[in-house]
């Protein structure tokens, strides 16, 4: 379970997230929506400490995974990121073969057993619904795949290290409609085994894939509830305005 308490986040002097509290249940899909610059991606990146890369960042409050504060001094960030996989906005496969892309997480973890790696790669590609398309060209460069295939490869790559949580930062925003629907189907399937948090600009997508939706604006979590409720009967006026397309 993911939980945040009183999260405040700053880029230098910019107050990017304001006093955010949220609970995310296991094996659910949670969508974050909101206008550009509202802090939803920043919030997502808290959970695998990707924001650590920004030199001027500052964080107060607590961010817990299964009750453990992931910003505690004793936490090994690399280990945390093996538990919390991430898929990025633009497909970003490594300049390596398809096989080596998926095996990457295992290799940097020090796994040497070739048979184990091969099995894990196959399982991950199957889970990402990519195996049938690439099984004959595992030794080819990942750059030969189409954009949609590359994104599913990135999902397979994240699955290979057996995380329990997968963060997706607008995973379909750079893809065509067919590839997008494949990714959405995949999210439905993956929900059984993983907790998924997805940031999206596309409200239909949020409505289609998620169980719960959080609406962010200007660094604040305006409303967080069941997706159905958010889209059918939101409590706040801002949410209503955003969903009906009056701004954003």
């Amino acid at each position: 379970m993911l939980e945040t308490k009183n999260i405040d986040f700053y880029y230098g002097s910019f107050h990017a997230l304001k006093n955010i509290a949220m609970k995310i249940e296991d094996h659910t899909v949670t969508a974050f929506i909101g206008p550009s610059g509202c802090g939803k991606s920043t919030f997502l990146r808290l959970f695998n400490r990707m924001n650590d890369l920004i030199p001027s960042m500052r964080l107060t409050g607590e961010c817990l995974i299964d009750g453990e504060d992931i910003y505690h001094k004793s936490v090994d960030v690399a280990k945390l990121r093996k538990r919390v996989g991430m898929v990025f906005q633009k497909p970003n496969p490594f300049p390596k073969t398809i096989f080596e892309n998926v095996a990457y997480g295992l290799r940097v973890d020090g796994v040497n057993d070739g048979r184990f790696i091969a099995r894990r790669v196959e399982e991950s590609l199957q889970s990402a619904a990519l195996w049938e398309e690439v099984k004959d060209k595992l030794k080819k460069s990942a750059f030969e795949l189409s954009g949609g295939q590359q994104q599913r490869l990135c999902i397979a790559r994240a699955l290979a290290i057996a995380p329990s949580i997968i963060l997706m930062d607008e995973p379909a925003s750079a893809l065509d409609p067919i590839s997008t629907s494949k990714i959405e189907d995949l999210i439905h399937i993956l929900k059984k085994d993983y907790t998924i948090v997805i940031v999206t600009h596309n409200m239909q997508q949020a409505a289609r894939v998620s169980d719960k939706t959080g609406f962010f604006m200007l660094g604040e979590l305006i409303e967080y509830d069941d997706t159905k409720k958010i889209f059918m009967n939101p409590e706040k006026e801002e949410t209503q305005n955003y969903i009906t397309g009056r701004f954003g």
């Binding site: 695998n48 990707m50 890369l53 690399a78 280990k79 990121r81 093996k82 996989g85 991430m86 990025f88 633009k90 970003n92 496969p93 490594f94 300049p95 990457y104 997480g105 290799r107 940097v108 973890d109 990135c154 790559r157 994240a158 290290i161």
Partner: peptide, 20 residues
């Protein structure tokens, strides 16, 4: 994004440098 992908998979800084 390459660096983030590598770090996101649990690689440390050095692994990211020489592998990616």
């Amino acid at each position: 994004t390459m660096r983030e992908a590598s770090l996101g998979l649990g690689a440390n800084h050095w692994q990211t440098i020489y592998r990616v």
